[in-house]
Design a protein around this nucleic acid. Structure first.
Length: 289
DNA sequence: CTGCATGTTAGGTT
DNA sequence: CAACCTAACATGCA
């Protein structure tokens, strides 16, 4: 599941290789991965050159000539594979890009077909409508700004971290890891956390994201970068996917609980339950008539 | 075979 | 408006 560090790793790998390449043949093997018609997708890439590759949140942005951009979101199982020479596509390869000035190919592969690929016209200042809803980059805003935004929210901290309008690029793995390092229970309300706790969370999040980027991302399930290399950060995970194992701080067994519909891993000792405000007591569980 | 879990987002409801 | 909930996607696994 590519989150910010994995997407950053992919983008860094692709940037060097794809700069200045001009599309020749583009093959769409599964139409649903493309927004709009296959015809308009192909037309919008014809004769276009890749100027640079960037990340915005979990999105990959290929800036193209002509003021357009090719956007890729990998969702859960999407991958981009760059190869130096044409290869037979592996299973679940949905789009194949070839180039006029390079013998290699870029393959978009996605076992679950949730990922999306599309071209969009850029507005003023490279603005992209599809990415306009995204919040700030966690590695770019200040601690002050983070605190200000978090204190404005009366909701649980875990789903807030996952909300792409709040911060762009944080997913389940790094949200759980950051909360554990800051010793915050995922149910705690954002606006109930003291400023220094929020600042600790922010710095922990930045540190983890930075370390994960340096490690080439986290490989759970089957994440690999654009050259097929797995990441190395999974060795440093302290709670994610470690239900029942010992917390590295205190030895207590890590628990897994559903928070806002998502699996959440945390240490019940280091991340104590908030005092509940009479919130969820029993489940109202009203069945259909 | 059935049913559930999975991550993210869109869209609808409270 | 903000917070919350759920369906949808496709596949693998218990």
């Amino acid at each position: 599941m590519p989150e910010l560090p994995e997407v950053e790793t992919i983008v860094r790998g692709l940037g060097e290789k794809l700069r200045e390449l001009e599309f020749s043949k583009v093959e769409v093997r599964l139409k649903k991965c493309i927004r709009g018609s296959k015809r308009s997708f192909l037309a919008s890439l014809r004769g276009k050159k890749i100027l640079r590759v960037e990340r915005r949140g979990k999105n990959i942005v290929f800036h193209l000539s002509g003021g357009t951009a090719l956007l890729v979101h990998l969702r859960m199982t999407g991958r981009l594979r760059f190869m130096l020479a044409p290869m037979l596509p592996e299973k679940h390869t949905h789009v194949i890009f070839s180039f006029k000035n390079h013998p290699g190919q870029l393959h978009f592969v996605d076992q679950r077909q949730f990922g999306r690929v599309f071209v969009e016209q850029k507005g003023d200042g490279d603005n992209l409508v599809s990415l306009a809803h995204l919040g700030p980059e966690p590695l770019e805003i200040s601690g002050k700004e983070f605190i200000r935004r978090a204190r404005a929210k009366d909701r649980a901290i875990k789903p807030l971290l996952l909300d792409q309008r709040f911060l762009a690029g944080v997913g389940n793995i790094y949200a759980d890891e950051a909360l554990h390092r800051a010793q915050i229970h995922p149910h705690r309300r954002a606006n109930a956390l003291p400023e220094n706790t929020l600042l600790g969370l922010f710095h922990g999040l930045q540190r983890i994201l930075g370390a994960a980027i340096r490690a080439g991302g986290t490989s759970v399930r089957s994440y690999v970068d654009a050259s097929g290399s797995p990441g190395g950060f999974q060795r440093f995970l302290r709670v994610y996917g470690r239900e029942g194992k010992a917390c590295p701080y205190c030895g207590t067994a890590i628990v897994r609980e559903r928070v806002a519909g998502r699996s959440s891993f945390f240490c019940p000792q280091c991340q104590p339950q908030p005092r509940r405000k009479g919130g969820r007591s029993a489940n109202p569980r009203k069945g259909p008539p």
